[in-house]
């Protein structure tokens, strides 16, 4: 009897988590369907499904396959990638306010993109124009991560070193970016600003596939480490005492996160606050057990960015409101809330 009770307790914990994960999953599906069905051209839900399973060249097919589906999938996947990347950054840096900004990854990506726009510097030759900017952004985002890694190698992988290193790198890239902007022509400058703002209008099915593959691989790899990452939340000493090689784990997770963040932001530009808010929401509802939190953060990020994507379409039907502004409007109050409530409640 007693034994049953204990197992019940564990089941109860798992059940609660699965419940919230299912809830997020349902929300993802509902929001994605909404995303697919909202647009200036009205297409009935039945026709949408029909269009999705058939091939054709009519307006409905073009609208669904070429515009709405990439947009919807990109919102879901980039949101998920940013959510997961944010979660693991917060975990390995032991800092509730960590995000791709904190580590300077966004600034690095922005600099890479600007370099492509202004100087026409391609890091890879012979790529189509559409991918020059993303590839540059990706390479620089990833280089930034390697730079942080280098700092970690020299000074040790404590959260303080990484956060301070990230801030330093961030400032460095921001000033380099400012320098580039100073020499940029008017239109190039506008193109850079537009890129930095982030936009889902750059979505395509191919890009969505790339993000999906990277997200799936990284999530699986992190899943295999889920207990060790959870142990990090007990504090470094504790984790070490449990036999976790915290330094190696940090490096490993940092590489995964770098890859994920770089891929997510290189296609859509910098969309702020999703990576900050999603993991916190998931953590509050699901708890720290990474086996569930990894999935929860991905889904929660997907929910947030999908909701943002819908909002950006419906504020003025026919126009696209900048999604970065929407996520910031959601994120900034949440950020303030985190700062004011402090660690006790949420972290």
């Amino acid at each position: 009897m007693q034994e049953m009770q204990e197992i019940c307790l564990y089941r109860e914990l798992v059940f609660r988590r699965l419940l919230f994960i299912s809830l997020f999953l349902i929300l993802c599906i509902v929001l994605s369907l909404l995303n697919l069905s909202i647009g200036p051209i009205s297409i009935g839900i039945g026709e949408i499904f029909h269009t999705l399973i058939t091939q054709g060249n009519d307006t409905a097919h073009v609208v669904i396959w070429d515009y709405r589906l990439p947009w919807t999938l990109m919102a879901l996947l980039v949101g998920g990638a940013l959510g997961l990347a944010g979660l693991e950054m917060q975990t390995i840096l032991n800092n509730p306010l960590a995000s791709s900004y904190t580590l300077g990854i966004s600034a690095g990506a922005g600099f890479g993109a600007a370099l492509a726009y202004i100087l026409g510097i391609k890091v890879l030759p012979n790529v189509p124009m559409e991918f020059v900017v993303p590839i540059n952004a990706f390479v620089f985002a990833f280089l930034t991560c390697m730079l942080i890694m280098l700092i970690g190698k020299i000074r040790g992988f404590t959260s303080e070193t990484l956060v301070l290193g990230g801030i330093a790198i961030s400032f460095m890239f921001q000033s380099l970016l400012a320098l580039l902007e100073y020499y940029a022509s008017e239109e190039t400058l506008q193109a850079i600003v537009f890129w930095l703002f982030g936009s889902l209008t750059k979505a395509s099915l191919f890009k969505a596939q790339v993000v999906f593959i990277v997200l799936a691989i990284v999530a699986t790899l992190l899943m295999l480490k889920s207990w060790k990452i959870t142990a990090l939340r007990l504090g470094d000493e504790k984790a070490k005492s449990l036999g976790v090689n915290t330094e190696r784990l940090r490096i490993e997770v940092l590489i995964y996160v770098s890859l994920l963040t770089s891929v997510a932001i290189c296609f859509v530009g910098i969309i702020g606050f999703v990576g900050l808010v999603a993991p916190h929401m998931a953590r509050m509802l699901i708890g720290e057990d990474q086996r569930f939190l990894i999935v929860g953060s991905i889904l929660c990020g997907g929910v947030i960015l999908s909701a943002g994507a819908i909002t950006s379409k419906v504020i003025v039907p026919g126009a696209i409101f900048p999604i970065g502004i929407i996520t910031s409007m959601l994120g900034v109050p949440f950020f303030m809330f985190l700062v004011i409530r402090g660690r006790k409640q949420i972290w």
Binding site: G39, P40, I41, V63, Y67, R68, S199, T201, K313, V316, P317, G318, A319, I320, F321, P322
Partner: peptide
């Protein structure tokens, strides 16, 4: 009809 400012993004479908 949809962009009040001097410039803005329009929905491709539009």
């Amino acid at each position: 009809k949809v962009v009040d400012a001097s410039s803005g993004d329009v929905n491709p479908e539009f």
